[in-house]
Design a protein around this nucleic acid. Structure first.
Lengths: 84, 84
DNA sequence: TTCGACAACGGACTATAGTCCGTTTGTCTA
DNA sequence: TAGACAAACGGACTATAGTCCGTTGTCGAA
């Protein structure tokens, strides 16, 4: 599994840390309700633009999410205490 | 234009800095010859996985490319002198 | 025990990502 | 002026991203 595909886990983690529902997120991102679910379940391989829509809706930088995936073992949560 | 879509320019810039042809890059990335051309011309919106294939073939980190796009004006080349 | 919020799932659909052929154009060099 | 190379372009195609409907199951609160 290419580590980049772990992004679904991380996006879900961030969303839950922020206490946003998939429904709300899909609104914010301008995406379909069911599609956000598919992405988080790892059943879709979104385009860069779609990833960008989601990260913007989550108010995080796309590159920071990718750095987190590529440079850590994802053993610590993406958002530090301070961000919450 | 969402800034993230500038990635085509940056990918081309990196490829040219490394002196690799589109043909060679498509081989390294396991993508179609014509598709790499379409991406660089901004006529395709690649999936995250495809971006990852290309950046790996170019031997750069995906997150560093995105950071470059999102945090700079792209007025300086992606690769510093030292990398060449 | 119901109601509402949330998320997974399903099918059917449209748009577009990505492939595989070939052709064209520009540039550089022998 | 040919010949080789790199890249843009074209059409036709398959796979999948992304939408839009509804349904199911779970959980916590009223």
């Amino acid at each position: 599994m290419a580590d980049i595909l772990k992004i679904n886990f991380v996006l879900r983690q961030i969303r839950e840390q922020k206490g946003i529902s998939q429904d709300k997120l899909s609104d914010l991102a301008g995406l379909d309700r069911t599609y956000v679910s598919l992405v988080e379940c790892g059943k879709r391989n979104p385009s860069l633009e779609t990833i960008d829509k989601i990260t913007r809706a989550l108010d995080v930088k796309t590159w920071e999410v990718l750095k987190y995936i590529q440079e850590t073992d994802c053993d610590k949560p993406f958002l530090g205490e301070a961000s919450l």
